[in-house]
Design a protein around this nucleic acid. Sequence first.
RNA 1: GGGUGAUUAGCUCAGUGGUAGAGCGCUUCGUUCACAUCGAAGAUGUCAGCGGUUCAAAUCCGUUAUCACCCA
Length: 941
Amino acid sequence: MTMDKSFNAGAAEARISAEWESAGAFAAGANASRTESFTVMIPPPNVTGSLHIGHAFNNTLQDILVRWHRMRGFDTLWQPGQDHAGIATQMVVERQMAERQEPNRCAIGRDAFVEKIWAWKQESGGTIMNQLKRLGASCDWSRNAFTMSGAPAAPAGEEGNFHDAVIRVFVDLYNKGIIYRGKRLVNWDPHFETAISDLEVENREVPGHMWHFKYPLAGGETYEYVERDEDGNVTLRETRDYISIATTRPETMLGDGAVAVHPDDPRYAPIVGKLCEIPVGPKEHRRLIPIITDEYPDPDFGSGAVKITGAHDFNDYGVATRNGIPLYSLMDTAGAMRADGLSYADSAAIATRAAGGEDVGDVSAVNLVPEELRGLDRFEARKRVVEAITAEGLAVTDAEGAPFVENKKIMQPFGDRSNVVIEPMLTDQWFVDTKRIVQPAIDAVRDGRTQILPEQHKKVYFHWLENIEPWTISRQLWWGHQIPVWYDEDGNQYCAPTEAEAQAQAPGKTLTRDPDVLDTWFSSGLWPIGTLGWPDDTPELRKYFPTDVLVTGFDIIFFWVARMMMMQLEIVKEAPFHTVYVHGLVRDEKGAKMSKSKGNVIDPLTLIDEYGADALRMTLTSMAAMGRDPKLGPRHVEAFRNFVTKIWNASRFAEMNQVRGGGPRPAPRHTVNRWIIGETARIRMATDEALSTYRFNDAANGLYAFVWGKVCDWYVEFSKPLFDGEFAQETRETMGWVLDQCYLMLHPVMPFVTEELWSLTGDRAGLLAHGNWPEYGAELIDADADREINWVISLIEEIRSARAQMGVPAGARLDLIVTEADKPSRDALSANAPLIGRLARVNPPQDGTAGKGMISVAAQGASFALPIGDVIDAEAETARLQKSLTKAEKDADGLRKRLDNPKFVQNAEPEVIEETRGKLTALDDDTTRLRTALAQLEAMR
RNA sequence: GGGUGAUUAGCUCAGUGGUAGAGCGCUUCGUUCACAUCGAAGAUGUCAGCGGUUCAAAUCCGUUAUCACCCA
């Protein structure tokens, strides 16, 4: 059989995938020959997702670790699965319903909607799994997990334990008091009408305005307002009957409960404790609020006075709760101004009593939105409020008397899914009191039970955990794990795994279940144990937990990694993995973040179609330097596609020379064969060293350089003359073995082409995916062979270089005259004459002297002359030799200077000194030879 | 404002104390029977600036500049 000229990735990949699958090659424990397990949990992609380049990168690295361990005989499990992705999935299905002009979710109701999502999941949820298979991911697909498996409405085929695990954990943490319900200010997404966690908020700088308004003092009171410069000199002194407030959100003025100033701010000291008037709302019901002190206002920012709207700003919320200021909610769940509750007049009356210090109790019915603004969108209300204040003359004005409005960049919170402005809202939500479970997660990393690589991410991890805030886990969505809490008519809570158990706690009461669902990350936080069958005590759980390595991007360290640490440590009291390898973000060729709006997104499937999965994987791996972002462009992938072709053709060459793989390691006599075996041992050690320290790029680039630079460039060329004669057989055996080693070591990075070559080049007992990873080492390195072959290589390079520089026609075969040679070079020369002759295009060496029309060439311990005919350009040859001489002399001078420095000899390590001496000797030899050659050239003129 | 990282060949990047490397690109040559998705030979660097530690600095420390990301 003759091999094709190149690897047809498109055709082969599908076929090989099918072979792996039908052989169950990736099943947990496949190819295991030892008891140690190796477990990797895939970061579950969203069930709505499709494979993007970040997934390709992330999963390539995991696959390398997994395949490497499987080949080494570990009991290996790579656990796949998908995340139900609450908001994202609900969004996708709602959008689809809208496109089909179907009734919306509210119209069809919760049960029908959830059923629709399940149907969608069963139809489209497998996309990313199939795409991962195209990448070559060797997950145990038979164990595919889903974070909603086993939920009450789950259809056939979606059975599983995940729902049980989630509910079990909720109930447990509830009973411990770690999960609680409370009214707090949370990030509210007005589009999805749900609370979201801090992490789901993206703060973006957007153009905005800063308005400056006057809050008149109550009863027309006045004070001396004095501003000073840094030296204390008075720069402004005037009598004011107001306090000046700057705000980017005028509509929230309606809910102000106070004005705060810094306690050390002398400008406002005279009026602290007095009342001022909010300059909005109907004149007859203007509200008065107190001027208080708090550490929060920055005296150097704006006017130094801050309006306090506790129900719509996180900083204000802190000030308000510290100072007993009521929290007045102004907006509804869609971000419109409230239209419910008491009339404005009644509300204002209550608020005024509160401002006077009276305890007015629950203010949730108080609606301080004036009737004419009720129901308006928050941004429309802002416009109206600004207009009204300006019309009334209470805007601070500039020198020309125009209202003073600063145009400036402001930081605004956006929902990461909805892209609408997040509104801080006062609502009842469920929280995890993370402070109570965070310490073990900190300790585990601090004492090294879990290591984070690269280490710089540890700092970020610690910083976040040490300042952790309560985690908002309730979501006002329908797709997700519904909170297992029921309420009776009096609002008492009953938390239990099932309604029946809750009912048993509340005999005779009518119970209603909390409609909210849990944050998606609450369930994915249980991924390591949930996928292995917990809460049941399964054999898988015992064997594969704790897992080994988590490979992930830095963007989900907080979302996911930290929470998995906290939750696993709280629930099963063990850290879920011993290593977290954090990789970078794949960027485009210019280093820009890929985004749809920039149009620079690179689709991994397109690259796979064009160049093959192996080329893409090899490219990503070669760029996976720890702590760095890979920058990917098609031309990089092309380079590695060429590499695939290269090893393919080396195999093809072997096949044409009756080389077969599958044999044992030979013990050859020829130097070339002994040399390449030693080089193979070197790359095996380097590859294992690189992989065990997660230096994926070193592994990939090392193998690339070995296969191309050592095997193809030299060994294959050296072997050609050996296929005739006494070394033919051992050369076939050696080449077969060396290529086998290449396939084995490259397989974790390039699984398809290596599997294909494995099956084409020998009679194999099994798949390469189950091949045995090599273990030999330095004992295979033959120092003599090494020295000899390196000498031969350098001689060939010297001759080629001299020929090219002197313009000798490439095809011309020259005589090789040995003008001087020591014993080792004479031996090396005679043993390898055919190799040198072929690769340098010279005739067999003969002794002689340099003469007219010759160029001179040197190797360690030997000098040669090559007659190139009458056409020799003596000038050019002089220049060539002179150039080499200058460089050699310069280098030698540098080394000599170092060796002459007594401090160097005194302080440097002995090996370094020895090495330097060696280099100098070699350079001095070169210099001598070059001088001789130049002198001869001169004499012959 | 706080933190982290980066700055090395024309481009994209490796290189954690011993006088700088790869891929791509570029120049010249080549239809030698594995491969033109190839081969051979070449050119290209004040390793961002300044200062320090050291026998020795791209590498360690300090500082400045520029860029990127994270957090407020």
